[in-house]
Design a protein around this nucleic acid. Sequence first.
RNA 1: GUCCCCAUCGUCUAGCCCGGUCCAGGACACAGGCCUUUCACGCCUGCGACAGGGGUUCGAAUCCCCUUGGGGACGCCA
Length: 467
Amino acid sequence: MDTIITRFPPSPTGYLHIGGARTALFNWLWARKNAGQFVLRIEDTDEARSTKESVDAILESMEWLGIDWDDGPYFQTQRHDIYNEHIDRLVEQGHAYYCDCTPEEVNAMREEAKAKGLKPMYNGKCRNRGLKKGENTVVRLKTPDTGVTIVDDIVKGSTAFQNAEIDDFIIQRSSGMAMYNLAVVVDDITMGINTIIRGDDHLVNTPKQILIYQALGVPLPVFGHVPMVLGADKARLSKRHGAMSVGEYKKMGFLADALINYLVRLGWSHGDQEFFERQELIEKFDLEHLGRSAGMFDMDKLYALNAKHIQKKKPVELGDDLVPHLADLGIDAQNDAFTQGVIETLQPRSKTLVEMAQGAAFYYRDEIEFEEKAAKKFLKPETQDLLNKCADAFDGLGDFSQGAQEEVFKQIMEETGLGFGKIAQPLRVAVTGTTVSPGIFEMFIALGKEKTVQRIRKAAQFCAAQG
RNA sequence: GUCCCCAUCGUCUAGCCCGGUCCAGGACACAGGCCUUUCACGCCUGCGACAGGGGUUCGAAUCCCCUUGGGGACGCCA
């Protein structure tokens, strides 16, 4: 086959939502896997609802996800001439005609059809009137009255649509602007798109588009209609189901790789494999294993996958992702050796970067605030001696390794007769302010000897002041 | 109303095309346990599904039909 050319055509009437991101992903993956091309096209022919902000937001989200395009972005509003050329040709060749019916008239026709138990349709009134272009004329495609139009779909199989069900739909508005179905087909033809993967809400549009391809005398592309993403109540995913836009997931601390992994697996499978690296996805993605049924968006699974990706990623790489979240907490951190050490201690216990940033905060504070409950339980006046003893011992350590720290613990446990936990918990509170943190040794190492000792001493003073 | 699509554990799914290896496998969630210096991670165990009904067949999750349920589309929106 020729070079695979796929596309993603968002309409800029909002942010990039996760359903759209998934279709973009499928197309991108397929192009990348086949060393093909991925085209980005902005479908902004609905001038009333399209905004520049939406375009920017969509591009930004795609960049964050790492979905890059080889061609575009094209804007449909800049392609009037191309559409009009094709429309004129269709009219000249008798495949399309001008119509001056008013919206009221058309509405009446639809009501009439409905009353007869049919699908609401335009009745073809102007088909043979030989009208010329006028003030309020639209162009309609002359569709066949009989026969069927077959949609051969790589995921849904073959579906036959009765041509009698398809009315002479508008391809050019009275304003002269092309309508969606025409613009899409002309774009796909002129951009050389040969593989179209999109949501199955477009399946019923496909026969109309095929009719345009045929009228234009152009071979059909490969169609693949993937099921939609549903919310937890099995209704089409919408705002009330929670976060919709890709940008929100970024804010919530998800890794782009994790979101991609999740989205692709929702509606595609590779045996029992759940976890995929980006490169792996490109290698393994295929069209055969796209699912046919709609799937519900499941936050829990996304969290689990995100946790996995956080665990497997290198601290250096995670650093760049984490720094902005630390900044959100007012922490001015760099992706340096210190931060990477911090990250290492938090990787197995963070589901999101937000969680990681929160868990990391104590490392960066100059002043530790003790949680009331924790202090009451573990920083009692009588704990002062223990803390000072620990601080002294640690301070005397030339080598602040885990092994050396363990030795210190051993000695103090012997001296005091206390169990490990009795020593570790007060120290934990002393250093972090809370009872929950990474493992005590790894944490001290990440923090560094100096700060660790300093914090323990401060806590000892705090204990003394409690009496 | 009309047309179209879909149907395996609560959820994502493997298996279905090319019937037997499936009294249906994995993952998330949930429950219990182990590990343990806290919280996690990890490990182990458990719970849990072929929507229903008819066929076809020696044999059906897999093929056919009907029913039911869910979703989508019918616009001078995309």
